[in-house]
Amino acid sequence: MREVHVDTVRDHIRDMCIDANYNLGDDVVQAFEQSLKIEESPTGRNVLEQLIENARIAREEQVPMCQDTGFAVIFVEVGQEVLFVGGDVKDAINEGVRRGYTEGYLRKSIVSDPVERVNTKDNTPAVIHFDVVPGDKVKLTIAPKGGGSENMSTVRMLKPAQGRQGVIDFVVEHVKTAGPNPCPPTVVGVGIGGTFEKVAWLAKKALLRPLGEPNPDPFYAEMEKEILTKVNDLGIGPQGFGGRVTSLAVHIETHPCHIASFPAAVNINCHASRHSERNI
């Protein structure tokens, strides 16, 4: 067994909260620049220019790109030969979030109870997804998720007979309904298969994939392209002001499913498609 001290996890998480919120990935900035080449609407182009400038300011001045610094959604892949020592790893992760959001001047957006709604004042607790994998390493990924785009998410239990076209229609219709609300240009995460809870997780996981990297299966890569074209043909455009670029990418993740089921889910990311990754 390889021992990993939970303080190491805590310190990485702290830094990752700040890194993800200050430094927008090069893949996203490049997608903005590509979009400028195809956007025909003057107002849409102006939005894209503002987003490029905003990302530059955030990176240079080390400030959050968006005031909604998100729910700390954390994926932890734990090698089965890893032994955590020094305390509870969940507590360590939450302590890392607490330090990151406080020391990084990030907004605290979490309420302790969904109905009573009292702010926890330190952005904890995080949403943590653990997975056990072979090996003796730990992979941490944080994806701070804004409320505006998260609210534009959905799960639908389709009928198997609806097939490929059924999923395409469902996703396009959903992006149309979301309209300007999730801060387009967006990244559209699509989950297909599994069960009710699995499909939502897949849609979220799909958002972690770098932009420009298609699904490794050519069938789904083609489907991603087709949905992206259809979504951009909606004309919603940057910020919903009308234009060619509604989404920067569509990512599909799949899982085998029951003979009677055909679940599909959409999780939308705003253009601040933030994440940070570390390996221990």
């Binding site: 939005v47 503002q50 987003l51 400038e53 905003n54 300011i57 955030a58 001045e61 400030v63 959050p64 790109m65 968006c66 005031q67 909604d68 804004g146 505006g148 309209g179 300007p180 609300n181 801060c183 910020q239 919903g240 002001f241 705003c270 253009h271 601040a272």
Partner: peptide, 30 residues
């Protein structure tokens, strides 16, 4: 703000003579 308003708000904008603007969601540092 950002995002769509309902019909009641749109009607009230006409009735009271007011305007709804959007600023760029996520361009918060700028």
């Amino acid at each position: 703000g950002k995002g769509s308003r309902n019909q009641e708000v749109k009607d009230a904008l006409k009735e009271h003579g007011a305007v709804y603007f959007a600023s760029v969601g996520g361009a918060a540092a700028l």
